[in-house]
Nucleic acid binder design. Sequence first.
DNA 1: TTGGAAAGTCAACAAGGCTGACATAAAATC
DNA 2: GATTTTATGTCAGCCTTGTTGACTTTCCAA
Lengths: 169, 169
Amino acid sequence: MEVGRTETGGGESLLFLTDEQLRKGIEAMYFAYRAFTADPDRILETHEYGRAHHRAIHFINRQSGLTVNMLLIMLGVTKQSLNRVLRTLVEDGLVEARIGRRDKRERNLYLTEKGAALERELSDAQRARMRAAYRAAGPAAVAGFRQVLEAMMDPEIRRHYQAMKDGAA
Amino acid sequence: MEVGRTETGGGESLLFLTDEQLRKGIEAMYFAYRAFTADPDRILETHEYGRAHHRAIHFINRQSGLTVNMLLIMLGVTKQSLNRVLRTLVEDGLVEARIGRRDKRERNLYLTEKGAALERELSDAQRARMRAAYRAAGPAAVAGFRQVLEAMMDPEIRRHYQAMKDGAA
DNA sequence: TTGGAAAGTCAACAAGGCTGACATAAAATC
DNA sequence: GATTTTATGTCAGCCTTGTTGACTTTCCAA
């Protein structure tokens, strides 16, 4: 609590670590996250889906063929909770669950064309806001934005986040 | 969608606006927000409260004496939803709702000592994570972090966010 | 004095978390 | 080959926190 009100020997200001600065950061996270989810939420309403469906669709699109267990780890929810969501997506023909080749206990998840279409609609909207914010803030700010967010994540999740590469399984 | 893959005439790279960069930003927001709420959530559990109580307590602490209507705007929920939360906080003696001096229809909200104690416990935990992230990323990154988050907010909320000054009503 | 704003309340409902218990198939191990 | 572990699915019930709609009370201001 008494941290950040002095200068280091090296002369680098620590004023950015005052409680007031931290509180502004906390509020910024809260308000920005609300805006961040608002656009997809509006779209989801018209499709009779919720935020949980969006998350599942996002990660299945991101890493086509990932297993239920992997998705569970990414989302950090119980299998019962995920299953409810996943079942409706499969029933509605947005997601296909194929039995694993090597390990037949596993289910590999894929978006159907219909699922991919909804994913595009959702991520277009979300990216539009993110792009506007990025453009307004500029590349240096964006780099800092990403650095702070990464530092805030739980370490295990951060590893998954950093490992996630382009599209393919 | 085809944006960001070229360079401007001025030579400034727009590679930070590619869909892949935007997607990483989206995922970073999601994962970081989850970590951001995890610590307070654990504390709230032991007190039989939820995230909604935390938010109310946060803003009442931040702007002591604010009205129910103002709190409604900050939180972006319905009065019925807020009322349920606020009622338990008043009943449990964490919040005091005083009738407005000028306008007696209004209720000005204040934290009691007990309420302030819980607020401190919650925000200490939340600040600890934020401080660690700030320290790891450094002041320049923090400035960028705040810039991008502000640019992402809805304009009306951003005005409130920027207007909110230190403590007093 | 009356219209409308601020606040409170009741009821009903939905999404999406949770726990616990149990079933099945397949893989892994003894 | 028998047993245990793992991955998945499913049923039932609970909680928090959001929603809508209807209605009341209080009280400022035109």
